[in-house]
Write a protein that binds this DNA or RNA. Structure first.
Lengths: 249, 249
DNA sequence: TTTTTTCAGTACGGAAACGTACGTCTTTTG
DNA sequence: CAAAAGACGTACGTTTCCGTACTGAAAAAA
């Protein structure tokens, strides 16, 4: 707390590259990071905190560092379902990358954490200035698109257990621990199924020794087991993200 | 056929702006059209013709003018489902816009027609040269993303009849006639449901006077009726497409 | 024309998931 | 500490849709 060196700093000071855990911020060229850094603000992201509201202008871009964001599509009759999750590998505000200023979906913290945010205007300015930043953001956007497409596939063809397993794996990828602090109710909302259905499915996982459950929390014990349950509905978006982030250093 | 004026031309000659029916080609600034025109080739797109294969490089971009393209996500165990359709409002090869050269999904003609195509390399060249072209293509890509997200929503929450109605409306939007030349089998594949389920649902539509059915073809008679069946699962992507294409002239 | 293929109609048992609801624990709030 | 709220366990009848399969009719091929 009382370190005199310039690197360690109060929250709002410009972050050094070493401080950030978001993969996009980590990965981008120093020049691009320098473009963003002055506008980045370290923020805590509390459970259920709303980041974007459908139809409303996007105020900030959030580079997630810990926690998980749920992106949820909603229609006129309030039917809703999760179309993607975002963790330290990504960011919110994808429409900005496409030159749009409005949020398409609802986005909120499903699992609390922290991240860096910057005003939308500053972000679009930076995008305009840097081709390489644009390139990276578009790859990130594409990765999210792929995730959405495979969510559509899972929603249409997978069984409840398969979808639940898929979700747990995606959450696990984005967390630092094996504990997933979530209620059955929220899992049900995201998957668009009954709460009771989630409860039963989780029991089955527990009986098979794949997870341990406590009130408001479940812990992955045997990830390989969950992967088997998820069948082929998990994996492609993850592999594609890796590919997209690998080939342009 | 034997008109001597320079405008009327053989298929491979450079198309004039007035000849093209694809909305993107229509809408873009003349300067951007001039950039693409030399590479555009008028092609007939036959039913079931494959345009993209997952994992394989994208060879051409297709600007659809008539007919409908199905974009289908596939996973390792060959589960598949349609994640979007493309007609005269759009084009194939979205990943190219994001700087990727590979097809993510399977894409093929669901309803035969025609379009203009150009080699992928020429397209990315043009993209690099023109900011306004990039902007337009990104809006088109975003519109497709929205469609995919709402497909995920429909797959997860809508009933078979609602999804079928949604699909018919989306096809109807992209056709010049009320006749949809498709078998129950193909509708079933796209929706990821049983063929027999489609048959029963279509009977219900027919009984209610919404469509007329013949072997391998169905005709919309009462579009408003179909819209009622689709409930709130149809409409948002369409409205958003309109918005996106309106605000940047 | 005859044969073959494709497409559509229909049926039946069964699986999956739903809506609903009620009771029992925890945890939070007053 | 009591009361209220939240989370989970469980149950039952019901809807939706599946897997499968057989039939007749229409179109295409021979």
């Amino acid at each position: 707390m009382t370190i005199e060196a310039g690197l360690e700093s109060v929250n709002d000071a410009m972050p050094s590259r070493a401080d950030v855990c978001n993969r996009l911020l980590n990965k981008m060229p120093v020049s691009d990071f320098a473009l963003l850094a002055p506008h980045l603000e370290l923020v805590s992201l509390k459970e259920r905190q709303v980041l974007e509201v459908p139809g409303r202008p996007i105020t900030h871009v959030y580079f997630v560092e810990t926690g998980v964001v749920s992106v949820v599509a909603v229609n006129a009759e309030d039917h809703r379902i999760e179309v993607g999750v975002i963790g330290k590998e990504g960011m919110t505000g994808v429409p900005l990358v496409f030159g749009d200023d409005r949020a398409q979906h609802s986005a909120y913290m499903q699992i609390g954490g922290s991240g860096r945010r910057m005003p939308a205007a500053a972000f679009t300015d930076a995008l305009r200035q840097s081709t390489s930043l644009r390139a990276l953001m578009m790859k990130s956007a594409q990765a999210f698109m792929i995730q959405t497409a495979h969510t559509a596939l899972a929603n249409g063809r997978a069984k409840l257990e398969e979808r639940l397993a898929r979700w747990l794996l995606m959450a696990h990828d984005r967390l630092d621990s094996d504990a997933v602090p979530l209620t059955h109710e929220f899992l049900a909302v995201m998957l668009g199924v009954r709460r009771a259905g989630v409860t039963v499915a989780l029991h089955s996982f527990e009986r098979r020794g794949f997870i341990a459950a406590r009130r408001g929390q479940l812990t992955l014990i045997n990830r390989a087991g969950i992967e088997q349950v998820a069948n082929s509905f998990y994996g492609i978006p993850e592999a594609e993200l890796k590919r997209l982030m690998a080939d342009t250093p």
